[in-house]
Design a protein around this nucleic acid. Structure first.
Lengths: 149, 149
DNA sequence: TTGGCAATTAAGAATAAATATTAATTAAAA
DNA sequence: TTTTAATTAATATTTATTCTTAATTGCCAA
């Protein structure tokens, strides 16, 4: 597990190695995403950063996230919502998706990760990765059902 | 494996049991989705049906697909695209997603299906299902790279 | 079989997310 | 300090999806 400093160093190194300037905005957006556990959307990141960077434009958030994605610093998350959501976590992991509140929870599954692919996939093409989406109802929602209000 | 007639009978029965009228539009949309192997979007279904139903509105396609989804006749597929895509195939299966052309290919993986869930998921809530998304580059795209033009 | 009513549809307007365009300003890096 | 890239602001565009309204149609009952 890396310290936050190490992660930020890697971030800085990645930007530099790609000739990207280390702007205040880029740093803050990346840091906010790192610290967030809720897979925020561009809009919600923008709202969150409003106090620290009052002049930050939504357009910059979109542009910056797209740039980070290309560098592999950020991943676009697959969800059912049309509003794309992002995360800074790059290590191999999977998602639990709550059907009710649409919350996403990360989890790891090493025995799946080290598993071979099924025969059915032989010959479809080049495989680059595999991920699981588990869905159901999260505890928060289950409890809300028990104790309404 | 059901015959198309049986599938259509089940479709009809499901509509009736839910008090839905069997309109020409609903029949055609469902049939088109059944016969399609390409996980079409609402737009592409609409385009496809244009010749048979020249007055079909895009809105109706959206509304109808949403209705079918509620009845469990159709599933919304998780992809990275913001444009939601649908399928009539309901049996348990997984997806190969081509990073290049965004094509989706179905595949089955019984040994995964019968696998238990990881410890990491104990206590997140109630699990209803699990799916794999494998991604990479499909053969079509690999070949296009070899022989450009 | 037909008449009526509620469900459904068509058409176009409206909304929302995401992106693009421009020109002026700002800030990082050499 | 100078050069160059990035950001801003404001506005426009694009694309996916939903809403509104009025007209139409499936289906049931007479």
């Amino acid at each position: 597990m890396d310290t936050e400093q190490q992660v930020m160093d890697h971030f800085e190194a990645t930007c530099r190695s790609h000739g990207l300037k280390l702007t205040h905005q880029r740093l803050e957006i990346y840091r906010a995403l790192l610290q967030s556990a809720e897979h925020p959307s561009a809009e919600s990141l923008h709202k969150q950063l409003e106090t620290r960077l009052p002049t930050l434009s939504l357009d910059t958030v979109y542009r910056t996230l797209a740039t980070f994605e290309q560098l592999g610093l950020v991943k676009r998350v697959e969800t059912m919502s049309s509003q794309a959501r992002f995360e800074a976590k790059i290590e191999q992991h999977h998602h639990f998706f709550c059907d009710q509140c649409r919350q996403l929870i990360d989890f790891t599954w090493h025995s799946f990760d080290s598993m071979g692919l099924p025969e059915a996939l032989m010959g479809v093409g080049t495989i680059r990765g595999k991920n699981v989406v588990v869905h159901g109802v999260c505890n928060d929602c289950l409890e809300k059902k028990k104790k309404p209000e």
